[in-house]
Design a protein around this nucleic acid. Structure first.
Lengths: 230, 230
DNA sequence: ACTTGCATACTTGTATGCAAGTATGTCAGC
DNA sequence: GCTGACATACTTGCATACAAGTATGCAAGT
């Protein structure tokens, strides 16, 4: 067992659980842990240098996110991507973020609009330098900011939490430069509608934008059929 | 320690955690545990006849629901009712359920409509016999059914999970017969709009209905100021 | 009387041991 | 060679022991 990690983390209060949750979630969403893979609490505990307890609590939370399935006395498995889970995640994300953007359109001040513009500009820049991680960072940043502007930041928290399956698809379909440019244009459309105080337009533009990730689904399923359920 | 409970539960897999979560959530929502009250894992473990482990896992989940606040090395407290939490919960519930009812309006079959009618009739009956618990049961049942008809049952799960603070208010304002009758009429309006395939109407009716619970808020805050934050 | 420092009794976070159930490999018997 | 039973080595769920930090009350000093 790795004592350094163990001891250094012991000083912080409740850091291990959150750290383990983030690590495991990233590993699943990035398909580093591939769908269907069996996970062992004990093995994860050894690899991360903590005991089973924080591992367990993280796994229970990931089950709430539908990213793992825990079968008592049998094992814990990375969930396969299911169409129902994707559809549900899409529904939740659309519902929350579209409702948020309507409110944001009514509440955004001039400095808020400037912040949105800045994010879009940063995305352009990331696109030019082909920095895909940075691009997706600002993608999230834009959506988060739109939710925050509704004064219901919870919309983004819950949307993120529910979007595990969607993010897996997004991560599997990363390298599509044409699509990336289209995404920036869609962002500009949304921000433009917010600026012109057109909630209906903003909602519609965001809804279409959110559905773009689904267009990659058939290709991914053909490429990785073993990642999908049934 | 109560060995009977402990042993009887040991046979089932993962039953203790779920049972403890439901018990604690009910206790908080019903204000049996009053807002601001300090909870002790060890004390709860003794009272429920289980060890700290399932208690901990339930409390962590309740923190996700914003119903408790866990302060490391200090204590766990029942969250006070905050206007932000109420507003967030209302936003989430409206967003999810209104989106669901739109889809439900398009998808409901004749037998689904009959089921909705049956629930409303049961509510009438519960009202006549002044059975408030039964009334609220069918209230939930109607909302859950509407979500299920959208083929996104997750909408109801998440709505429920996010509605802890709202349900606390609802439970604190229980005995209002006039209001109850009004609620039934609102339900009938929603179901009627679904039957006539008017998604916009159904959504609007549901939205207004969902906001009714908030009308009780000022009275409750005046009656129990110590339950509220700040 | 008041303040200050320390012992103590809490709290939660983490680690680990035990119980119960399942899959699997191996060996005996046919 | 094939089949079936059993030992074994896993799994998760729960209980408990230990670590570390905080509040509190008491006693001693000013």
């Amino acid at each position: 067992m790795d004592m350094q990690i163990s001891i250094s983390e012991r000083t912080n209060g409740g850091a291990a659980r959150g750290r383990v949750y983030s690590l495991l979630r990233d590993a699943i969403v990035s398909s580093e842990f591939h769908p269907g893979q069996r996970l062992s609490e004990k093995d994860l505990a050894n690899r991360l240098g903590v005991s089973r307890t924080p591992i367990r609590e993280a796994l229970v939370r990931l089950r709430d996110d539908r990213l793992v399935e825990i079968v008592p006395q049998l094992g814990t498995y990375v969930s396969r991507i299911s169409h129902q889970a994707i559809s549900d995640a899409q529904f939740v994300r659309e519902s929350l973020e579209c409702a948020a953007v309507r409110v944001a359109t009514e509440q955004a001040g001039e400095e808020d609009l400037a912040a949105l513009d800045a994010i879009v500009r940063s995305q352009h820049e990331a696109y030019r330098s082909q920095d895909i991680d940075r691009f997706y960072f600002f993608d999230d940043e834009l959506h988060r900011t739109l939710c925050d502007l509704s004064s219901h930041g919870i919309a983004w928290s819950l949307s993120q939490r529910a979007s595990g399956h969607l993010n897996r698809i997004r991560r599997l379909s990363m390298t599509l430069p044409d699509y990336v440019h289209e995404m920036i244009e869609e962002h500009e459309t949304v921000v433009g509608a917010v600026r012109r105080r057109q909630p209906e337009e903003a909602e519609q533009a965001l809804r279409e934008h959110l559905r773009m990730v689904l267009t990659a689904l058939p290709d991914i399923e053909q490429e990785h059929p073993e990642y999908f359920q049934r």
